[in-house]
């Protein structure tokens, strides 16, 4: 299960999307997410879906990588679907148990929600797959630096994020190792009720935390030894630079907004 988390798993292919400035990609993803919630009919969703498909195709990231992100949130999707299906008020009641009503509106809402979440996860996964974590944090740092309230924390937050990303694979490996060691001592993670299972995790979590603290301490020391003293006066190996690709990116963004707005408005007539 641990290997299914795609967030933070950069997949380099050297595609034009990979080469785009992270700021452009962040802005586009941000816009994409907003538009997903703004989209209200089949045509808008199909439009968004097509945009995403093209982006995935251009990125050359295998589809299986993107879909892996969905696997981990299947439960959330199912929960949302069920909730929407039975809790949406509507006139066209198909069947009813007590306060639970299955309505056509409910089904419509549920499907819409499911599509939204799937598109949302695929889109954001794609962004993390095509943007190296470092340039992602660089992009965030840069964008946040332009927002007055966030300005003072931009560097620290970005540094924290990039370190977290750096240590995700290390800690996952470590978790696997500890689980194996405790299994070899007869620990049972699979049987029993919820409380028992939660308790069974203590032999994994305690060593994991201890080791994470140790790593944090070591890393802090190593960073200080390499003259790290915050973001001031730091230079960068890779400076962010907009290129022609980013112009296309922003053009596509306008196309995206225009498309969704148009289809939202005129989709009604098309139905």
């Amino acid at each position: 299960m641990l290997n299914d988390i795609t967030i933070g798993q950069y997949y380099p292919t050297g595609s034009p999307i990979h080469k785009m400035d992270p700021r452009t990609k962040l802005m586009m993803t941000f816009l994409y997410v907003i538009l997903l919630f703004f989209a209200n009919n089949v045509y808008s969703f199909v439009f968004m879906f097509l945009l995403l498909s093209v982006a995935i195709k251009v990125s050359k990231v295998p589809l299986s990588y993107i879909l892996r992100g969905i696997k981990t949130i299947v439960f959330i999707i199912m929960f949302t679907v069920v909730l929407n299906m039975f809790m949406t008020p509507g006139d066209n009641v198909l069947c009813q148990w007590g306060i639970f009503k299955l309505t056509t509106e409910g089904i419509y809402n549920a499907v819409k929600m499911a599509i939204r979440i799937v598109l949302l996860v695929c889109g954001t996964s794609l962004m993390t797959l095509v943007t190296s974590p470092i340039s992602l944090t660089d992009g965030m740092e840069n964008l946040m630096g332009k927002v007055p309230i966030l300005k003072n924390y931009a560097h620290e937050l970005a540094m924290m994020m990039s370190i977290a990303l750096r240590f995700i694979p290390t800690l996952m490996e470590e978790t696997n190792r500890i689980i194996n060691a405790q299994k070899s001592r007869g620990a049972d993670f699979e049987s029993g009720n919820l409380i028992r299972r939660a308790k069974a995790l203590i032999p994994v979590l305690v060593p994991l935390f201890l080791s994470a603290f140790q790593r944090a301490e070591d890393l802090a020391l190593a960073m200080e030894a390499r003259c790290y003293r915050g973001g001031e006066n730091r230079t960068r190996l890779k400076e962010l630079k907009y290129t022609y690709l980013d112009r296309y990116g922003y053009m596509i963004s306008f196309f995206m907004i225009a498309g969704v707005v148009t289809l939202n408005v005129f989709g009604v007539y098309l139905l």
Partner: peptide
């Protein structure tokens, strides 16, 4: 359980399993 009872494994850096 029957297996780990018979075959004990001490992994590399086993101090990390202490909790």
């Amino acid at each position: 359980k029957d297996v780990v009872k018979k075959v004990g494994v001490v992994f590399q850096y086993p101090e990390y399993q202490l909790f």
